[in-house]
Amino acid sequence: METLIAEDLALLLLDDDKGTMAASSVARPLFGGALLVELALSGAVEVAEKTGVWSSAKVRATGTAAPSDPLLAAALATVAKQPRSAQDLTNRIGKGVREQLLERLVDRGLLERREGRFLGLFPHTTWPAADAAHERAVRQRLQDVLVTGVDPDPRTAGLVALLAAVDQAHKVVDPDRLKARQVKRRAKDVAEGAWAADAVRDAVQAAQAAVTAAVVASTAATTAGGS
């Protein structure tokens, strides 16, 4: 089954039984980042050279044909309007993507949509697994890379980079005899490694940095709100 990196990411972050999602507070930039990574791997976007010491690197479209997938096509159309920072783009193209991904996965028979009420009062939707076979295959690829030490293909490396950005890489595999910090270290090495052409890797790492920044901002806001 062909899926987007963003769809695989959603499956990995969802609890198969409860149907709730980890890292939901940064879902918008995270899934925007996943679309950006997919576009980078296809060669549709690249990171432009910085124009000055104080300017940030911008992501721009390369002029390739629009992808057939509507989510990717919409994301590329946004990138093509003008070069923007990855942090800006992940928020722009990630708007509403989480919900679209979940509905697509329901349509494919991988998730089930369940409506309920939290505390018996507030409407609440969960997305438990309906068919976990594809997710198991994705987890096995991650297991091979993060625990066994197999060299990643570009797609798996991009997925690892996104999981590392939200501190979930060590939670989607069985660490076996490794400690969590060792799996995290491996995920960091994969994200920084020579698994793709420099232009692709630069774009993926820009997306990863944007998601990491969103996580830091979300954590700071939560801490400030609780103090």
Rank of each mutant, 00 (worst) to 15 (best):
M1Y: 02
T3D: 09
E7L: 12
D8G: 14
L9A: 11
L12E: 00
D15P: 02
K18N: 07
G19R: 05
A23K: 02
A34L: 08
L35I: 06
V37S: 03
A40W: 00
L41E: 01
S42Q: 13
A44C: 11
V45G: 07
S56F: 12
G63S: 09
G63Q: 09
G63N: 08
D69E: 14
D69W: 12
L71A: 05
L72Q: 05
L72M: 06
T78G: 00
Q82K: 15
A86C: 05
L89P: 02
T90H: 06
R92G: 00
G96D: 14
R98I: 03
Q100S: 13
Q100H: 09
E103M: 09
R104Q: 04
L105Q: 04
D107K: 14
L111S: 04
R117I: 00
R117T: 07
R117H: 11
G120F: 07
H124N: 12
H124V: 10
T125V: 15
T126K: 08
W127F: 13
P128H: 05
D131T: 05
R136P: 01
R139E: 03
R141P: 04
V147S: 11
T148R: 15
G149L: 07
R155A: 11
L159H: 11
L162R: 03
A164K: 12
A164C: 01
Q168V: 01
A169W: 02
H170P: 05
K171Q: 10
D174P: 01
P175W: 04
L178S: 10
V183R: 10
V183F: 03
V183E: 04
R185T: 13
A187H: 06
K188Q: 14
E192H: 04
G193D: 15
W195Y: 14
A197C: 04
D198N: 01
D198M: 03
V200P: 05
A203I: 01
V204K: 04
V204A: 10
Q205T: 12
Q205D: 05
A206W: 04
A209D: 15
V215Y: 06
V215M: 15
A220Q: 15
T223D: 12
A224I: 09
G226K: 10
S227E: 14
